[in-house]
Amino acid sequence: MSDDVLRIEGLHTDIAQYHILEGVDLSVPRGAVTMLLGRNGVGKTTTLRTIMGHWAAKSGSITYDGQDITAWPTPARARAGIGFVPEDMGIFTDLTVEENMVLAAASGPLDATRLETVFAAFPPLRTFWKSEAGNLSGGQKQMLSIARAMAEERKLYLIDEPTKGLAPAIVSTMAGALRELKRAGASILLVEQNFAVAKALGDHAAVMDDGRIVWTGAMAELAADAGLQERLMGLSMEVTG
């Protein structure tokens, strides 16, 4: 499995006195979309945040692009090419859309052709380019959060529930943008509750329960097996899909 952009082994993370991750083993193959699934509160967000360095791993290792980044500070991980879109979107609401995008291009000025791609995927961002991001609607904020991740070349994207609470039309816009990212060669680790989106985008799937990965395999396999879904996540996703 040398073609994994990210490999996590035996990852334990505590938050205060709570053990959240209890030995996560996970591989994210290069150039594919890996879905991280599971019920609420099983540690999906904590897994992403530990990869990003927001929480320190108590034990275990995180290998990214052949390097052990377990002890790296967050900015170093970002500079190495990991893009992060948090569940709360992490928009700087006091800044304009433009300023948010300028900041997102950490290594230099904003690239004009990239910007055109962003505008093509998310037309409202062009309209509200000079507006304060805090005044955007929820969907527009989510667009901005993905757009920020696209502002620069990244090898790996960690994206936490990008379609949460969005209207169907915007969900499909999001999905289109993520597909575009993948086509450009990026690897994506995606936490997603909307099974239709997961099914449409995912190549691989990993299911978490109680701070561990309990199943890994092809997304298609999981999507096809309602019984497996029931057993792993306590509900058949076909119902919602």
Binding site: H54, P73, P75, A78, F92, L95, L103, A104
Partner: peptide, 24 residues
């Protein structure tokens, strides 16, 4: 200036600024 943007953004959400690659 970009440094100004980083400061303003950092006051709001330092963790996100670091996640974008800036050493806050």
């Amino acid at each position: 200036t970009k440094i100004g943007l980083i400061v303003r953004a950092g006051v709001q959400n330092g963790q996100m600024v670091e996640s974008l690659g800036y050493r806050l």
